[in-house]
Simulated scan of single mutants.
Amino acid sequence: MKSNIILFITVGFITLIVILITHKPKVKSNLPVGYNVDDAKLWANARNFYYPLEQNPDELESDLELLGQMLYFDTRLSVNGTQSCNTCHNLDTYGVDNFSTSSGAIEGMQGDRNSPTVLNASLHQSQFWDGRAATLEEQAKGPILNPVEMAIPHEGVLLDRLKDVKEYVELFESSFPEHTNAITYNNVATAIGAFERRLTTRSRFDDFMALDFEALNIQEKRGLKVFLEAGCQSCHDGVALGGVQFRRFGEMLDYTKVAPQINMDEGMYKLTQNPGDLYKFKVPSLRNIEKTYPYFHDGSVWDLEESVDIMAKTQLNKTLSEDDLKHISIFLKSLTGEVSESIKSIPTIPAFR
């Protein structure tokens, strides 16, 4: 009896294997009908490094995000009520102020590094040029208390201001119902971070990576091909095309000799005092790079083609032709995307008392 059962199970298993082998499911190709082979090859090469970014919803979806939006645009977050987060990271100009370096709330105070775009910052592995903040929330805490930026002397000053506004008290309580004391500095940063995670920008390049081969024109595809052949993706990788690695500016050639107008900056070394971090910076995202000029850590270069030329020479030890520089720049413009009007519009901010 036992042997019959074993025989039955064995025969059944073999039959199942035969069925699986002889009845392979047909895998449906995701490639567009009538696709161009060259486009498919270009896409396949790019897919080794990139994947399409999903589009954020057009509306904010929670009280926490709405609170973060209000705080982002509120000048109460600066010592004299003159600056908000949006002052240096203006959502109408692609999350930057288009200055080489930004002025602080106190007259005469000037930052020493270019203000990076806040758009797509949630896709980065860390924040600031030197990566000193691990998260958006940690980053949000920095400028508010920085004496060169928004210059609030200590967090209690800001919290007292917010507690004096009925609308904020109610919105903090609804956003943090589990907290007895909802208005805390951590919660301010949490709300701003929740809002900033909505600031992603899908572009035509994402449509191409989602197999819409007509999303890029011939020149843009040529630019993408040159971009990959040159090795630009060795630094500008990931969904943000940057924001992941830390690389020494001038790995192949001294950047002060290639572009003497760029200020010397010790980079991460200022923070870590590790000799291996000298002149290292976080690789910036290339999304919206067409709009986020001026370029580099000091904002000293205003022309996109010129910045590509400097990068090719200093990081790749390559001198690209004028035609290649032009086409890479054309491709980079396909990375421009938009935040929905409702999300980037200034909300109703409670009046000062």
Rank of each mutant, 00 (worst) to 15 (best):
T93A: 10
N90Q: 13
G111L: 02
Q110T: 14
G104L: 03
N90W: 12
T87A: 04
F73T: 08
G111S: 10
G108D: 12
C88G: 06
T93N: 12
V79L: 06
S102C: 07
D112T: 15
G111Y: 00
G108P: 09
G95I: 07
C88A: 14
S115W: 00
S78V: 04
H89K: 04
Q110R: 14
M109E: 10
C85E: 00
N98Q: 15
Y72R: 01
Q83T: 08
Y94F: 11
N80P: 09
G111V: 00
S115I: 02
T75C: 06
N114P: 07
N90E: 06
Y94D: 12
L91T: 12
I106C: 12
E107W: 15
G111H: 01
T101C: 06
M109Q: 15
A105S: 15
S84A: 11
S102N: 12
N80T: 10
S100E: 04
S102L: 03
F73Y: 15
G108T: 11
S100V: 06
E107K: 15
Q83S: 13
N80R: 12
N90P: 10
M109V: 14
S78Y: 02
Q83A: 11
F73N: 05
G111A: 13
N114Q: 04
T93V: 14
S78L: 03
V79E: 07
S84K: 00
N80D: 12
A105P: 07
N86C: 11
Q83M: 12
N80L: 11
F99M: 11
S115L: 02
G81R: 01
N98K: 08
T101W: 06
D92Y: 13
I106D: 08
A105V: 03
S84D: 00
L91I: 07
N90A: 11
D74V: 01
S84M: 01
F73A: 06
N114I: 02
Y94I: 07
V96P: 01
Y94C: 05
G95N: 05
I106A: 11
Y94A: 13
Y72F: 15
T87W: 00
S78N: 10
I106K: 12
G104D: 04
V96I: 11
C88N: 05
G111I: 03
V79S: 13
R113F: 03
N80V: 08
F99G: 02
D97G: 14
D74I: 01
S103F: 08
Q110S: 14
R113A: 04
T87H: 01
S100P: 09
G95T: 05
N98C: 09
D92E: 10
S102T: 14
S115Y: 02
Q83G: 03
C88R: 03
C85H: 00
S102A: 14
Y72A: 00
D112S: 15
H89Y: 04
S103M: 09
T82A: 09
C85M: 06
S78Q: 09
Q110I: 15
C88M: 05
G81Q: 07
N80W: 05
Q83F: 02
S102F: 01
G104Y: 02
R76N: 15
L77W: 05
L71Q: 03
S84C: 01
T75K: 13
V96A: 04
Y94L: 13
Y94N: 09
I106R: 11
L71F: 06
G95R: 03
T93P: 04
